[in-house]
């Protein structure tokens, strides 16, 4: 037992940041899953994460707010922004929505880069390391629970109807615009909380972490894992976070594998890695083969 705890201590001191990252990325992937489940391809989640990270870090550093309050503010701030820009932005659909949210993300990034209070390109340094493992675990669990409940509720059904056919959903009396706004705002909230958590264990944040690449990374996690249920995005987040670590020996070539995995999954596993129906069929074949 002692041997186990000692080893776990070693493991934890080396890899805790990595485990934390998996948790935060899982929340981000779930935040984009939420908007995707309503048929919205929004690439604003990295920007929402950034807003959450900066607001929370500034509140901690300048006003000394308590950590729970800071986390809440980190979620509320981007949600408020989402609510504000949602009404005009969500009139767009498909690729146009993706492009508009992308442009919004760039505006946020460049604004943060140029503001005095955010520390410009140097970012914010010396953020207290308040995040602990159980914070992330708890908030991730809450997110999963909330989203799982949401899926089975009237709201979740409405999201699904809108995703499948917007016009039909509207004709059935679903208030499409309001539900889209809800998905967009909730997604912003989750991404913001993830950003706040992230800021309080990395010690340092800079505008570079919330740009186009990160928006694309978040989307990639969800699509790689599969968006048919909640497990897929989290699986994708774990894979894309851990893969670069496992491939350290490849040095400069290691992202090559990342890109190749992405292409291969898109080509050969159209619904992502986690596809409940395929996995069930596979299990049945295993059992059938033995009998």
């Amino acid at each position: 037992m002692e041997w186990l705890t000692a080893n776990f201590g070693d493991f934890w001191s080396t890899y805790s940041t990595l485990v934390f990252s998996v948790g935060v990325h899982a929340m981000l992937a779930l935040s984009i899953w939420l908007t995707l489940s309503c048929g919205l391809l929004s690439l604003a989640n990295a920007a929402f994460m950034g807003i959450g990270a900066y607001v929370s870090a500034l509140l901690t550093l300048n006003l000394g707010w308590s950590f729970p309050a800071v986390l809440l503010a980190g979620g509320v701030a981007p949600a408020a922004v989402a609510l504000l820009i949602g009404a005009p932005v969500l009139r767009l659909s498909g690729v146009y929505l993706a492009m508009a949210t992308l442009a919004f993300g760039e505006v946020v990034r460049i604004t943060v880069l140029n503001l005095e209070i955010t520390g410009g390109p140097e970012g914010l340094n010396g953020i207290p390391l308040s995040t602990e493992g159980w914070h992330i675990a708890l908030l991730l669990a809450l997110t999963i629970y909330g989203l799982a409940r949401l899926r089975r509720s009237k709201v979740g059904r409405a999201f699904e109807a809108i995703k499948e056919d917007e016009v039909a959903a509207r004709l059935m009396g679903i208030n499409v615009d309001r539900y889209k706004l809800l998905a967009f705002t909730l997604g912003g909230f989750i991404a913001g909380v993830a950003g706040a958590l992230n800021a309080h264990f990395t010690f340092f944040i800079s505008p570079r972490e919330y740009g186009f690449e990160n928006a694309v990374d978040i989307l990639t996690m969800a699509v790689l894992g599969g968006v048919s249920d909640l497990i897929g995005p989290m699986l994708g987040a774990a894979i894309l976070t851990l893969l670069p670590e496992l491939l350290r020996s490849l040095h400069d070539f290691r992202s090559l594998v990342n890109g190749a995995v992405l292409v291969l999954v898109v080509l050969f596993l159209p619904k992502g890695i986690w596809e409940p129906r395929r996995i069930r069929a596979w299990f049945q074949r295993m059992i059938g083969g033995r009998a």
């Binding site: 694309v216 990639t220 890109g259 898109v266 080509l267 159209p270």
Partner: peptide, 28 residues
């Protein structure tokens, strides 16, 4: 992907993967 009639998001994501591969190959 065309043959499979994949939704428009899918080819875009595949090209992101290609971009990552090319950039990484050039860096290597």
């Amino acid at each position: 992907l065309r043959a499979r009639n994949a939704p428009h998001l899918i080819p875009m994501i595949a090209t992101i993967g290609v971009g990552i591969m090319l950039t990484s190959a050039a860096q290597g």
